[in-house]
Design a binder for these strands. Structure first.
Length: 369
DNA sequence: AATGTGGGCAACCGCCAACCG
DNA sequence: ACGGTTGGCGGTTGCCCACAT
């Protein structure tokens, strides 16, 4: 934040040689901008700055208006529902704050970004610091899921652009959702057939095989009762809390729907795959087009063969489904290979399709864009 | 009361894509 | 096709303030 008196910019930025102000906006500047915007509406921002008599660059005016002066802004703390939605949307969209903000009326991308970085991220990290280091080892087969560890796992995955994974027995799907800093909104999916648990991909890759995963009963996409039998979470917002809180808020029915939407594949691809009758031994992935994320993904997992990588990196149309009929192996951090599955199939979907699922949130009282 | 520290958040920076002449 | 301009976005900065010592 800069002081109001910080006229620091000595640059001539093309505004007639007038030195432009920087730093905090004064009430007088705010008044000028508000009056101008209410009278004339939004036009070219450099014109706004000039015509409103502001010694600011258009960009600064735009930012001030959008983030602070806009009359439809909702000020104040985020409600638990908004937190929930932000987490949900972030799990789908990653750091696409503008897209997240577009689905929270009255909230700005900057506000959400700050909220995420200051509050939610901190909570996730603090929860991860209290997690059990053995949360993902094979002993878990007889123990409850460590929510904290899962939160940490998801946090790490989010940091790496891998947003989550879901392993499902009856419908045989894993899903990981990734963020992407690219303009591509395409996501990918492979499906596999193993045990029935949501499980951090990073943990799986680093510490064990799918066979090591804790098992829930096969009652659909995720056995909510098993996963929810854990000790209560201490906060609304860790990533595992995302699941739990959603469950608590939405009830079992919606919980399943929510999970399908955010941690597994949305119904469209799940259904399409199942309808094709080729569910078994499929693996669901999603990966970003971000090269760093891809590097990390490839380095850690070696899950997918070159064919798949090529496919994932391709610009194939969304909602495509292919069947590689190849066996896929994963290699964990110790170099141990384990078989992920056969009859590998890839599914892509458009994140915008995913977002339709968000509209089912009962607390959203507005029209999604 | 003085000082240190960390969190919150407004604003800036730099990059990128779209647009336009 | 090309270069300049503009708008949009995500990341980062740095000040203010509350709280702890």
């Amino acid at each position: 934040m800069r002081k109001p008196g910080d006229h620091a910019s000595g640059k001539n930025n093309g505004n007639g040689g007038v030195k432009l102000r920087k730093g905090l906006w004064s009430p007088e500047e705010d008044d000028k901008l508000i009056n101008y915007m209410l009278t004339n509406g939004q036009g070219c921002w450099s014109d706004v700055a000039r015509n409103a008599g502001l010694q600011r660059c258009g960009k600064s005016c735009r930012l001030r208006w959008i983030n602070y002066l806009r009359p439809d802004l909702k000020r104040g703390a985020f409600s638990p529902q908004e937190e929930e939605l932000i987490i949900h949307l972030h799990s789908l969209l990653g750091n696409r704050w503008s897209q997240i903000a577009a689905r929270l009326p009255g909230r700005t991308d900057n506000e959400i970004k700050n909220f995420w970085n200051s509050t939610i991220k901190k909570r996730l990290k603090s929860s991860s610091s209290t997690s059990s280091p053995n949360a993902s080892d094979s002993s878990l087969s007889t123990e409850p899921i460590d929510h904290q560890a899962m939160g940490a796992g998801f946090m790490a995955m989010q940091d790496q652009g891998i947003m989550g994974m879901y392993v499902n027995n009856s419908s045989s799907s894993w899903t990981s959702l990734s963020s992407s800093s690219s303009s591509s909104m395409r996501s990918m999916a492979l499906l596999t057939h193993h045990q029935d648990i949501m499980y951090p991909l990073s943990n799986m890759l680093n510490h064990g095989t799918p066979m090591d995963m804790p098992t829930c009963a096969s009652t659909g996409y995720l056995d909510a009762s098993s996963c929810m039998s854990m000790e209560p979470l201490d906060g609304m917002v860790n990533v595992d809390g995302l699941v739990s809180e959603s469950y608590g808020m939405l009830g079992d029915h919606n919980f399943n729907g929510l999970l399908q939407g955010e941690l597994s594949v949305p119904s469209l691809e799940s259904i399409s795959i199942e309808e094709n009758g080729q569910i078994s031994e499929d693996v669901v992935f999603d990966r970003s087009t971000n090269s760093n994320n891809n590097d990390h993904f490839d380095h850690n997992s070696h899950i997918i063969n070159s064919h798949i990588i090529e496919r994932i990196n391709s610009s194939a149309p969304v909602n495509n489904c292919i069947n590689t009929s190849k066996k896929v192996e994963a290699v964990d951090g110790a170099g141990t290979k384990w078989e992920v599955g056969e009859d590998l199939r890839l599914v892509e979907w458009d994140v915008e399709d995913l977002m339709r699922d968000v509209s089912s949130f009962p607390f959203i009282d507005h029209q999604l864009e």
